[in-house]
Design a binder for these strands. Structure first.
Lengths: 210, 210
DNA sequence: CAAATTTTTGACCGATTGGACAAACGTTAA
DNA sequence: TTAACGTTTGTCCAATCGGTCAAAAATTTG
């Protein structure tokens, strides 16, 4: 019922919609939903406001499309966590992918952070449904590794939270990280330093007893 | 020059200003600066908009006062980190205090997160000045512990970032944490679980070689 | 008490907001 | 060429925004 009609789009529509979404990601991630204005987005996309509203029927529509698209790529790194292969290698890979996302897609990270900070009004069902199910599934894999003595025992859920928190911190709190590290260490090398530190932090304590 | 004249306040002024600040903390921490409206704050404080503006001359004024006050308590836990005493005990205490702040002052944590997410327009000087100086000072203490072989070697700055990220995560991303843990584990016990996990995560890997 | 002062409010203002709309413009195909 | 369709824009609107102001109400002070 009410399945969205298949959008038959022209070439221009596809291109312009993409242009708008990119501009909107800039604006939304910096100012939040309410703080962003359609005029701002339109100007960033190089078009007039009515023209923008020809491609998206409302501000909400842009935001929803953006969030929808974000969620798919957002869960991808965790989905890749597999129970075949060495546990420490799997976890290292997950941390790496997460940190790379923070480095390469900071706007998406901030958009997500903004949404959660405001109480996740638009994605609550997805958090309680899809996300919870995925995390529970991966937590079960991690637990099986622990039962088999392949890694030390801890709480898999809080382990995942900590990986989220630390990696996303480098995107969401970037200005603070840069300010504290200063011009020297806050430059391009800070992600390599972070990667080294986080791998040590998370993996050293998980190594099984010799 | 231009030292703010000493505010000679009546009893009512003191009380009402406090009431407004508390209401504003609710609203700002949930919607951000631009997303919050004076009417919202006034209603939350149980007074009319003009009445609120009798106590604070602008929305900006409320926000500035709030941020100013926040910063003092925000840095307190790190200030307490002392180089006398056992390193692991000191660090455990810092993690505890930070997590307690996330539990007891989640609104303040979100207010801060909102400010940083939007590029820290109002507190950039403080980040580059006071905060950087404090972190550098404490990083030097941690480094001295490492040089003395009292804890394992790592990057003190990224260690501090990780402590910030993980502890504040439980305030800023609270709705996500609750959603993923579900009604059972997402209840009141989640902070104790988090405390146990984080102490193990950060302290186990720092123990000196036997 | 009455005068002075502090507190509260309703009415109002200009600016900005999200969005509607019809007219103009451009492109394509018969 | 022209009719049909896709695209763009100037203009407009109602709602909401932050903030002002004068006057009323409450409180404090003499």
């Amino acid at each position: 019922m009410d399945a969205p009609a298949k959008p038959r789009r022209t070439r221009i529509q596809t291109e312009k919609r993409e242009l708008i979404l990119d501009a909107a990601l800039d604006v939304f991630s910096q100012h939040g939903f309410r703080g962003a204005t359609i005029d701002q987005i339109a100007e960033a996309a190089g078009m007039s406001k009515p023209n923008l509203l020809y491609y998206f029927k409302s501000k909400e529509d842009i935001h929803t499309t953006l969030i929808q698209r974000l969620l798919e790529t957002w869960l991808a790194p965790l989905r890749e966590l597999d129970d075949i292969g060495d546990p420490l290698t799997e976890l290292r890979g997950y941390i790496r992918r997460k940190l790379e996302m923070a480095r390469d897609y900071p706007r998406e990270s901030r958009l997500f952070a903004n949404e959660i900070l405001q109480g996740a009004p638009r994605i609550m069902p997805m958090l309680e449904g899809e996300l919870k199910a995925l995390v529970d599934e991966k937590a079960e894999i991690i637990k099986s590794w622990m039962r088999a003595g392949r890694i030390q025992r801890t709480d898999p859920w809080h382990l995942i939270f900590s990986i989220w928190a630390t990696t996303q911190h480098y995107a969401d709190f970037d200005v603070q990280v840069r300010a504290v590290l200063g011009p020297r260490r806050g430059g391009d090398g800070r992600f390599e330093d972070a990667a080294r530190f986080l791998e040590q932090l998370f993996l050293e304590g998980l190594k099984p007893d010799a």
